[in-house]
């Protein structure tokens, strides 16, 4: 199973809606992520990057193609055990925590679902691991800042000790100083736990900071795959990627003039 890597996707296709109104969000995507690798999925809104992530995580059932996680071929509905391998962190820390559950309950729930035992010990350990002390354990989400909420969301994903962590724009709703803290935390957790990360983001600099390799998506297809070293050197093969690189470098009157749509 290690030869296959952590994620193997072949010819993934996701369409929303029925018949004539159906919109193809992901159109024949194939990619693989090695065990222990940190992989970035980059694109603009509507590129299908989040849809790929949701198909891998099991949140989206309407896909066709082949998805394998940790060497196990996945069907549309996931068995309970799958979620101990693969967890996800969402973009909006204000929407991803139940507003009426205290941190304690949020973290105790996955432990109860999977019958793991030692609830108190696990909660205290994971809170320390994400940089929140035990004093946070009985707070409600509304008593936490955005960064603290995102740490709780990461703790919730880690409490099941997964090998694969899917990150859907985990820092784009946060201030830059908090973004730096969360990126540092994710990097440290990856090193400590040997996690495989898949990071979906529109921000090339964030992807470069956390990932080893990335794929650029546009309109449901992968435009190109490259290493972060290539990205840092600006060595993109495709014009779409070059345009994205240029746009992320700050405002430039001449560059804005040259932008075009890529179908």
């Amino acid at each position: 199973m290690t030869e296959q890597g952590m994620i193997g996707i072949e010819n993934l296709r996701v369409a929303f809606g029925q018949g004539a109104d159906s919109v193809v969000a992901v159109d024949g995507v194939s990619l693989s992520v090695r065990d222990g690798e940190s992989f970035g999925l980059v694109g603009e809104s509507g590129s299908g990057k989040s849809t790929v992530l949701r198909a891998v995580s099991g949140l989206n059932h309407d896909w066709s193609g082949r998805v394998a996680v940790a060497g196990v071929e996945q069907s549309r509905r996931r068995a309970k055990g799958f979620f101990k391998t693969c967890q996800m962190v969402f973009q909006d820390p204000y929407g991803s925590l139940h507003p009426r559950h205290p941190v304690d309950r949020i973290l105790a729930e996955p432990i109860a679902i999977h019958g793991l035992g030692d609830t108190d010990g696990r909660i205290d350990r994971v809170l320390l691991e994400v940089g929140l002390g035990p004093s946070f354990r009985f707070r409600y989400p509304h008593q936490l800042s955005g960064g603290q909420r995102q740490r709780v969301a990461i703790a919730r994903a880690l409490v099941l000790e997964p090998r694969l962590l899917l990150l859907d724009e985990p820092t784009s709703a946060l201030d830059v100083s908090v973004q730096a803290e969360i990126l540092n935390l994710l990097r440290r957790l990856r090193a400590e736990r040997g996690l495989t990360l898949v990071l979906v983001s529109h921000n090339l600099a964030v992807v470069a900071n956390l990932c080893d390799r990335l794929a650029v998506m546009n309109r449901g297809r992968i435009v190109e795959e490259m290493t972060v070293e290539d990205l840092r050197r600006g060595e993109a093969a495709q014009p779409y990627t070059r345009q994205l690189l240029r746009a992320s470098q700050g405002y430039d009157r001449a560059a804005a003039e040259s932008f075009r749509d890529f179908a």
């Binding site: 099991g58 996800m88 929407g95 999977h114 919730r156 099941l160």
Partner: peptide, 22 residues
């Protein structure tokens, strides 16, 4: 459709648990 419901589903929570608890 809220993310916290998606998160609960990703923990393997059953429909009954999500409805009653969340």
């Amino acid at each position: 459709r809220a993310d916290f419901i998606s998160a609960a589903r990703l923990q393997g929570a059953s429909s009954a648990r999500i409805i009653l608890g969340h």
